[in-house]
């Protein structure tokens, strides 16, 4: 069984986003970009399935800038993905259009499982996996904290608001990762060197004949209202007084 892992190149999670003065978006010039953290978890899960013998091949795909080939797709291959597909574009592509492109890739590659991140930490959309499942007419196990393959299906434990929920999915299936699914390995230097010889297929959006025109227009992007740092109290007694003042303590 083949596992397909879509990954997104995003502003590194350690970098504090800066809103551009002209209100058009967040400044991405000269800042560190990395793989979306949830997608590292997705690759790790796929590679572990391969190491256990449950998967035969791990293919990663990204829709993004050509530079992704030498950063996130290299990291992905160094972590254990066998090959990569780059669908190059300079434009931002919305989750619906990403899902449509991934549908085409899935139809070509015929994976048994597609593992995505639950959300990209830049747009915070949390949509693409569910949309892909809809377009393919496949089952979906979102926010996964455990994935167990067996027989014709996959059992997915999901992190839900009240706790945990388990669903049995028919294969092929879509899984999206939550933080506690696994701890992704580091891409070590020797593995990065070796990864350079693993293939990358270079495509463009035109190759797939999908209309990716955005449906949402961003009118402006602003900083949220800033909180003022408050005061520091010197003792527990003072804090007790404050809590009384707030009406939460008697």
């Amino acid at each position: 069984m083949k596992v397909l892992v879509p990954v997104k190149r995003v502003l590194d999670y350690n970098v504090k986003p800066r809103v551009k003065a002209d209100g058009t978006g967040v400044d991405l010039a000269n800042v560190k970009m990395s793989m979306n953290p949830f997608d590292e978890i997705a690759i790790e899960e796929a590679v572990r399935l391969k190491e256990k013998g449950a998967a035969t091949e791990v293919v990663v795909v990204t829709i993004g800038v050509p530079k992704a080939e030498t950063d996130v797709l290299l990291t992905a291959r160094a972590m254990g993905a066998d090959r990569a597909i780059l669908i190059a574009t300079e434009d931002e592509v919305e989750p619906l259009a990403v899902a449509k492109l991934l549908q085409k890739v899935a139809e070509e590659e015929q994976p048994g499982l597609v593992i995505l991140g639950k959300q990209a930490i830049d747009d915070d959309s949390n949509q693409t996996g569910q949309m892909l499942a809809a377009l393919l007419g496949w089952s979906q196990g979102t926010f996964a904290s455990k994935v167990e393959l067996g027989g014709n299906g996959v059992k997915v434990t999901r992190e839900v608001d009240g706790g945990l929920e388990t669903v049995d999915l028919k294969l092929p299936a879509i899984v999206t990762t939550d933080l506690r699914l696994n701890e992704p390995r580091y891409a070590t230097l020797p593995n990065i060197m070796k990864a350079k010889s693993k293939p990358v297929a270079k495509k463009t959006i035109a190759d797939y004949g999908i209309d990716v025109a955005p449906r949402l227009k961003t009118l402006k992007v602003v900083e949220p209202g800033k909180r003022q740092a408050g005061i520091k109290v010197g003792s527990v007694d003072e804090l007790v007084e404050k809590l009384k003042g707030l009406g939460v303590a008697k």
Partner: peptide, 28 residues
């Protein structure tokens, strides 16, 4: 295209929503 996590309704087709962990608010 879904509009995720709206913070306000500006008009029948325009909404605000947080991006980048709420470090920016987009009007879409």
């Amino acid at each position: 295209m879904q509009i995720s996590d709206i913070l306000s309704v500006e008009s029948a087709d325009t909404f605000t929503r947080p991006i980048y962990a709420g470090n920016a608010i987009a009007t879409v």
